[in-house]
Computed example of a mutant assay.
Amino acid sequence: MHRSRLCALVIDCKVEDIDAAADFWSRALGKPVRKNAPVDSGYREIETRDDELIMLLQQVEHPSRTHLDIETDDLDAEVRRLEALGARRVEFIKRWWVMEAPTGHRFCVVRPQRGPLEAHDNANVWSDDPGKPGAR
């Protein structure tokens, strides 16, 4: 069995200046850009509380859009579970999978972002059947 949960909203920005994009979204959402976050040249993080979704801005080459990240303690098992539900693998990048839902929406499957999943009430435990949640 493994655990997974929704963890992040990612705002994909096809822009030249990711800092200007972060400034806009920071002001629009009333939340500061996280100052202590590791700065990757193409990413910025909007500060959220521990009980809120992580909110990232990502500088991209494709059209601007948003996507969700699902975090899991077993990347391979979660990808297989989602494939059994109809999703497909698009690309492995660094340490996560870009997936596409049957609806055409892109999302990522990532390793835990805020510590162990079992420490949070909203974690799901999946049974051996990839489509059915198991008992907690």
Rank of each mutant, 00 (worst) to 15 (best):
V90Q: 03
A22H: 00
S64Y: 07
F92Y: 14
S127C: 13
D129A: 10
T48A: 13
D69I: 02
E100K: 14
M55T: 12
D74F: 01
D128M: 06
T72E: 00
R27G: 13
K31Y: 02
R3T: 08
V60P: 07
V15G: 00
P112V: 06
D76N: 12
N124Q: 11
K94C: 06
E91Q: 15
C13E: 14
W96C: 11
E45W: 13
R89Y: 03
A87I: 07
R106T: 12
K94R: 13
H120E: 12
D69V: 01
H2I: 08
A123W: 07
L57W: 06
S4K: 02
V109E: 01
V98M: 10
I54Y: 11
A22V: 08
D40C: 02
T103Q: 09
D51A: 10
H67Q: 11
D12W: 04
L75K: 05
C7S: 13
E45A: 07
C13S: 10
V60L: 05
E91G: 03
V98G: 00
L82I: 06
C13Q: 15
G30F: 00
L68I: 10
L53C: 03
V79A: 15
N36Y: 08
R27A: 12
A135W: 07
D40K: 12
I18C: 00
Y43W: 13
L85Q: 12
D50A: 10
I54V: 14
R80P: 00
A101G: 10
L53W: 04
I70L: 11
I70G: 02
L68Q: 10
I11F: 05
A101P: 03
R89K: 15
L9I: 13
I93K: 14
L82H: 04
I18D: 00
I18G: 00
A119D: 13
N124D: 05
K31P: 00
R3L: 10
M55P: 01
E45R: 12
K14L: 11
P38W: 02
E83W: 02
P112W: 05
W25I: 09
I46K: 01
R65T: 09
P112C: 06
R81C: 08
A135S: 09
I46C: 03
R136V: 13
L6G: 01
R89V: 08
G30L: 00
T103C: 09
R27H: 11
L85E: 08
P38N: 02
C108F: 08
M55E: 01
E83K: 15
I70F: 01
N122M: 05
I11L: 12
R111T: 12
P32R: 01
A20G: 04
R114P: 00
E91W: 06
S127I: 03
D69K: 03
V79F: 07
K14C: 14
A21P: 06
P116W: 02
G104P: 07
P102Y: 09
R106K: 14
Q59D: 03
R27Q: 15
V39C: 05
R136H: 11
E91S: 11
